[in-house]
């Protein structure tokens, strides 16, 4: 045996021989002894550690939420504030614009509609860059000092989701029955009354448009990061916080915020289906 080993060392095939012995032990002896090998045990330990890591993340997340962690809640409130403001502004501007685009026939309407539809897939970083260049100190709107403020994010998010509101409103108005216009006019509706009555006729489609736009606003990260700057206690939103926390390796905080984001999205959609239900009942 020893002479064999020496010979093996001489011939530099020792490592190969050890590997062969190890394989032999694992593939024939350990299974026949019906016990876990040190390899299996190590693999299981690693997996458990990994699972614990994610599981602990969830535990930590709920702890953070239910203990009312101020930093976490600051991000949640910032998100709600920004997205509510931007959806409100977008609806105020977007509904009448969408109505005009869908209701009236004017030269260039088709092209305008195509442009709006294209803007639906506007990348958030492009919007961020664009708005940044306008509101930074050197930009034309630099004097308003809204870069790295909530107002700045609202402005940029409005640019981002306005095409969604306009395009979906225009489609909803276009999809209305052709007889509606005749009916409204013959019953005596004029100007604004036609606008509001038509929007009311399309209310379900408009609710969906609003929810889609809102979903885009709460879930985007590019605009909030570039325009808001992810400033703690100030412009840090849920998404920018998640990006930061995962960058730091703090998955618990990230998961906590992710859960909140999903809850908001779910609540909004739940509210939508509830609204549809009661207005149909």
């Amino acid at each position: 045996m020893i002479t064999l080993l020496i010979q093996a060392l001489k011939e530099r095939t020792l490592s190969i021989s050890f590997a062969a012995i190890d394989r032999l032990v694992h593939h024939s002896i350990i299974p026949s002894m019906n016990i876990n090998s040190y390899r299996t045990e190590e693999a299981l330990k690693k997996l458990k550690k990994k699972m614990d890591y994610i599981f602990n993340g969830f535990i930590e997340a709920f702890k953070l939420l239910f203990s009312g962690d101020e930093e976490t809640f600051s991000a949640i409130f910032a998100t709600l504030k920004v997205s509510s403001a931007s959806i409100t502004v977008s609806l105020i501007i977007g509904l009448p614009c969408g109505f005009i685009l869908g209701y009236y026939d004017f030269p260039g309407r088709k092209y305008l509609k195509t442009v709006t539809d294209t803007l639906l897939s506007l990348p958030t970083v492009v919007v961020g860059l664009f708005v940044y260049s306008f509101i930074s100190k050197r930009g034309p709107l630099g004097s308003y000092n809204i870069l790295f403020t909530i107002t700045g994010i609202v402005a940029a998010q409005t640019v981002l989701i306005l095409p969604i509101v306009i395009s979906l409103t225009a489609s909803a108005i276009e999809g209305l029955d052709r007889r509606l216009r005749l009916t409204l006019i013959t019953l005596g509706a004029r100007g604004k009354q036609i606008l509001f009555s038509s929007l009311f006729e399309a209310r379900y489609a408009l609710l969906t448009a609003a929810v889609t736009a809102y979903g885009r606003a709460i879930s985007e990260v590019g605009v909030s990061m570039m325009i808001g700057g992810n400033i703690k206690w100030h412009t840090r939103t849920i998404t920018t916080a998640i990006a930061l926390e995962s960058g730091k390796g703090e998955f618990a905080a990230g998961i906590a915020l992710g859960v909140v984001l999903l809850t908001i999205a779910f609540s909004v959609n739940f509210a939508l289906s509830f609204l549809k239900k009661i207005s149909n009942a």
């Binding site: 029955d177 007889r179 509606l180 005749l182 009916t183 009555s197 009311f200 006729e201 209310r203």
Partner: peptide, 9 residues
């Protein structure tokens, strides 16, 4: 009153 009238929703 058009031939196939439309009712508001």
């Amino acid at each position: 009153l058009i031939q196939e009238p439309y009712l508001l929703k």
